[in-house]
Design a protein around this nucleic acid. Structure first.
Length: 303
DNA sequence: CTCCAGGGATGAT
DNA sequence: ATCATCCATGGA
């Protein structure tokens, strides 16, 4: 659920688990009760092999106190349904450049598309690595993207995002922007720095803050979240702008708002299209609310 | 304020 | 098999 919840775009199903990369390392990850991690056949120094379980545990946020985090969510029907549906879902800690670059590529794209772009960039500019009998590829560093041509980047299906990705890569690789140093900034300062980068607006800045800077309060508002907020929190308000929704979300969802957002997002995405005859928690949620007479005549029908 | 840019997956007909 | 829809930023 964590790897397929729209926060990371390169993991692929393999056997009972997933293959992918964490930074420069090729990883096979499988969950039984705890997270199992296995590494490729490629010989690695013993020291690295010993460190990898810790690296994976850090990446997957296994130290996040999920019980506490979920208890901090507001108690309302939409949030409660999402909390139940997403039990165990974690916000992972992504490498900063990889996360920033991927989300610059994500603008106006759907998840399947973003996966293609990530794969194309890795194939063209990344380093291939073997894991068992699978080939995975690391995400290219900013320095590599910075010296790629806009034409080469467009060939990776980036469209008009090629220009922004290249410009941002150049800001990073030239040292004019220090992603690691920004860890010391306040949320507001960090958001300001990120939004100054080409191709980064409030939504993408919040994604990078949440997925790469451990700012668990950051609440990205995309179309899915916008639909959820409008439908369940402002059913009769006509003009709710994304700006207003952001202001509401920052106050309402609390210190782990980003987690709440991820749960609402994943739940909405996976229940938006329900197979005939099935009755999931979101259907129950709609009925429960309608039973209380809080429906709205011109409310958009669930898709 | 509106319009546009670029495009493959996905859903609807 | 075609046709419409999905998507966020920045510039005109």
């Amino acid at each position: 659920m964590t790897l397929d919840s729209g926060q990371v775009f390169h993991w692929e199903k393999a056997g009972n688990g997933f293959v992918g990369t964490i930074g420069q390392y090729a990883i096979y990850a499988e969950q039984d009760n705890v997270l199992k991690v296995r590494f490729g056949a490629t010989p690695k120094p013993a020291r690295e092999t010993r460190m990898l379980p810790g690296i994976a545990a850090h990446y997957f946020g296994l130290d996040h106190p999920l019980t506490e985090i979920c208890a901090s969510f507001p108690d309302d029907p939409a949030m409660n349904a999402a909390r139940d549906f997403c039990r165990g879902l974690r916000i992972i800690r992504q490498p900063k450049w990889e996360c920033l670059a991927t989300f610059i590529c994500s603008s106006m794209k759907q998840v399947a598309h973003i996966r293609q772009i990530s794969l194309a960039l890795r194939k063209r500019f990344g380093e291939p690595q073997k894991i068992d009998n699978h080939l995975v590829r690391t995400f290219p560093p900013a320095q590599r993207i910075a010296r790629a041509s806009q034409k080469q980047l467009r060939e990776c299906a980036l469209g008009y995002r090629a220009k922004n990705l290249r410009a941002t890569a150049q800001l990073i690789s030239s040292g004019r922007c220090h992603l690691d140093a920004w860890s010391a900034l306040s949320d507001a300062q960090l958001r300001e720095q990120l939004c100054a980068l080409p191709g980064v607006g409030p939504k993408i800045a919040n994604c990078v803050m949440l997925f790469a800077y451990e700012r668990l309060r950051a609440f990205p508002v995309d179309v899915w979240i916008e639909r959820v907020l409008k439908r369940y929190y402002f059913p009769r308000r006509k003009k709710m702008t994304a700006q207003r929704l952001r202001e509401f979300s920052e106050g309402y969802f609390g210190e782990h708002g980003g987690y709440a957002q991820q749960y609402l997002f994943h739940h909405a995405r996976l229940t938006s299209r329900t197979t005939a005859g099935s009755r999931d928690s979101s259907t129950a949620l709609r009925s429960a609310r309608n039973d209380k007479g809080e429906g709205c005549a011109d409310e958009q029908k669930p898709r």
